[in-house]
Design a protein around this nucleic acid. Structure first.
Lengths: 338, 338
DNA sequence: GCTCAAAATGGAACCGATACCATTACTTTA
DNA sequence: TAAAGTAATGGTATCGGTTCCATTTTGAGC
């Protein structure tokens, strides 16, 4: 019944085709054209009957060509990350690479472990959405010649392409829009910035830009999701600015989710108190009257990230931009209609 | 500057430690104990200074121990899949395995390609959430002795563990609950069943159980997400059962999302027309008055799937159950309160 | 102190491919 | 026609480990 057979190897194909290992190897590699049509046919037939498939492990060993791309994701459950991962995988496949996705759950220790692991599998490129600051290990990759692309978040002292949203612009767009809608006081809600350059950047730009526009402003950092501190901060903010039209701007999808819950708990009316979020989510249209968002072009971001990588994997290595930033698009809904 | 160095190898460590390849190999393998403490120390030190890390590609070659698990996901963007993937990855890591996730976007052709690929990487086990019916290839794995676990969906003629929700029970729970809430007519909404055994099973059980309970019932299969056909079907259903309390039961998260949109388009009031979904989603609590759901125990499901795999990877191969089904848990919200 | 088994270590073949360097058979070109 | 180039193919070392078997140490038992 379950007669544990083995996967057939290149030698078996060679024997059956009456050819040499080398020829078979050529057939499955880049040099198929160098083989005469008759030899090609014989090999194709032999491989077909045997159900042969080259062993990637063995391939990777000699040439270092694992055909593997590694990806580090800070939080796979975040919708933005899901979209990005999906895009990166697709793009990789188009280039003939497979993707190994590692989720770090925002834990620097796991991040380190995963990086070691990806190294052990000889990935040919790395897409990193960092949790911490794995300088050391990224430098190892760099000195090994493995291209790295930083996705959404930068890592201190690591020079590599950074692909992501134009955070500066995003905040500006949001504030401009909110101000235009007549809101005079804005509370910015973000998860704790910690190591995330993106969160830091959005946060600091918010401060700056809000001041420039003469908006009343404050920020709320989400700590433990269960804490009642957030609720307190929000109602305090509203109380302090009773005489002004208030709005809340959320730094990412998680924040939007948390704040929407808060609104509900406090019985706030969307629109009367404005609400706007960075990152478009499935349900933003459903919570009536809809939540206004700045959508990130996730497909473009992931496609670009992979392109950068491929560009540098090929012995092409021309100079490349250090940063590629995309503009978000505004999706207007009822939550910012007073 | 970027002096492309190489990763250090076992020979270098051996030389530096004044030991043999074999000993170093033992040190990093299962046989560390067989080495004297002093040798262990020397090797540890040498490996440390060189930053050595065994090359998994090479390892996989000889023993076939790639330490890789492959996972096939039908739709990575589905929240249920995200949760499962997250769980599977965690579980794998606990067992010292890495996970290669392949998304098939519900396309049988991509599924085939990905399976070939995973084979080429010598994965030691496979978690399959199938899109089509890749019998042929799964049998290849089976005859090669690679354990397979089917997740959520069965595949015809492939004998392997099936881990997932108890669909029969889930439908029964839903209908019992809806009936208990006083709904007399229920519309079941599902994505096209096609190859998904789960969708098929839920659908047919729905029919059966609804009849048994004497509920008026009908089903709506979501086709193109843009079609207006769905809207028509829903309003027809409501019109046809004006004299009864109507509810909609959604077969999965995607359906819930689609139907919630329909409710909004048609201006239906949640509760007055009941709404209930299988799969818990982030936002179900937010669309007031909240959407009642049957939550799947995603962590348990993924953990179990990996356990099955590990159980059979180890030369342990005792008999195992063919199917492990979990009960969902009911999360009651306003959408089923008349 | 000597024998013998067990523990510790090393040597070399091997896993399944790739890649460099032949070799052979034809064409061109001078 | 000889020299030289090119296309088609094969031989073999090699990648970085693991594993089996051989060898050397060590220690227990008498």
């Amino acid at each position: 019944m379950s007669s544990i057979s083995r996967r057939s190897t290149i030698v078996e194909v060679a024997r059956l085709a009456g050819a040499s290992k080398t020829s078979v190897s050529r057939y499955f590699g880049e040099e198929r054209d160098r083989l005469s049509p008759s030899l090609q046919a014989r090999i194709a037939h032999a491989a077909g009957t045997l159900g042969y498939q080259p062993n990637q492990m063995a391939r990777g060993l000699k040439g270092g060509r694992s055909k593997l791309i590694g990806m580090l994701v800070a939080d796979i459950r975040n919708p933005f990350s899901v979209a990005i991962t999906h895009g990166v995988e697709q793009a990789c496949r188009q280039y003939g690479y497979s993707l190994v996705v590692c989720n770090t759950d925002n834990d620097p220790e796991q991040e380190r472990q995963h990086l070691d692991l990806l190294g052990a599998y000889q990935v040919e490129g790395l897409v990193v959405n960092a949790s911490g600051n794995p300088e050391r290990q990224l430098h190892t990759f760099i000195s090994l010649g493995t291209p790295i692309v930083l996705l959404d978040r930068e890592v201190d002292h690591v020079e590599a392409e950074v692909v992501g949203l134009d955070n500066h612009l995003a905040i500006d767009m949001a504030l401009k829009y909110l101000a235009g809608q007549g809101y005079q006081a804005v509370l910015y809600v973000s998860e704790a910035p910690e190591q995330s350059s993106t969160r830091q950047r959005r946060l600091s730009r918010f401060h700056q830009a809000a001041e420039q526009r003469g908006l009343h402003n404050a920020t709320l950092l989400l700590a433990a999701p269960n804490g009642t501190a957030a609720q307190q901060t929000l109602s305090d903010f509203l109380a302090a600015h009773q005489q002004h039209a208030c709005a809340v701007l959320c730094g990412n999808g998680t924040a939007t989710l948390a704040v929407t819950r808060l609104f509900q708990q406090l019985g706030l009316t969307l629109g009367k108190v404005g609400l706007m979020g960075i990152d478009e989510l499935d349900w933003c249209a459903l919570v009536s009257p809809g939540i206004t968002t700045l959508a990130q072009p996730t497909d473009a971001i992931s496609k670009t990230a992979v392109e950068c990588l491929m560009h540098r994997i090929a012995p092409h290595t021309s100079a490349m931009p250090t940063t590629v930033s995309f503009a978000p698009s505004l999706i207007e809904r009822g939550s910012t209609q007073r």
